[in-house]
């Protein structure tokens, strides 16, 4: 299994798909990277030579794309700032409720997680 940027170990999938295993690289960026490095998109990640791997890594850094730890830290920092300034969005993040004004009467399960019944407790 090849490694790109020290930690990434994408599998035996075609390049545009394998690159998406890197946190911060989605379909569009993956396709763009493959095009910029003039690699054949149908090739598997395992068939890459050392030089080609370096080429991809170089494109990522040269384009100023933030991936993996850097990106995760940036996102965490953004959340932290919102929470530190006591903004509405920060509070919603802290409580694990939807942040962008969605209803919470029903649904909102992505944020709220699995259904936990609250409210009326029947007396025995």
């Amino acid at each position: 299994m090849p490694r790109i940027l020290a930690v990434e170990i994408p599998g035996n999938r075609p390049l545009p798909y394998a690159l998406r295993y890197i946190y911060g690289i989605g379909p569009t960026l993956a396709a763009k990277l493959v095009a910029e490095t003039d690699l054949d998109p149908s090739r598997r990640a395992s068939s890459l030579s050392e030089a080609e791997i370096n080429q991809i890594a170089e494109r990522i850094t040269a384009n100023g794309i933030r991936v993996e730890g850097d990106l995760r830290r940036e996102v965490a920092g953004n959340l932290k700032r919102l929470q530190a300034i006591q903004s509405y969005r920060g509070m919603r993040h802290r409580r694990g409720l939807p942040v962008r004004g969605q209803r919470t009467r029903c649904n909102a399960r992505t944020r709220k997680g699995k259904v936990k019944t609250v409210g009326i407790q029947k007396k025995a």
Binding site: R81, A84, I85, Q86, S87, Y88, R89, M91, V118, G119, I120, Q121
Partner: peptide, 23 residues
């Protein structure tokens, strides 16, 4: 840190104190 946000984001308009207990 608050620059770029709107004033209303900091003054909450609702006060939710939990559901009424039915006991």
């Amino acid at each position: 840190n608050m620059v770029g946000h709107r004033l209303g984001e900091f003054a909450l308009t609702r006060s939710f104190r939990g559901h009424q207990s039915h006991t």
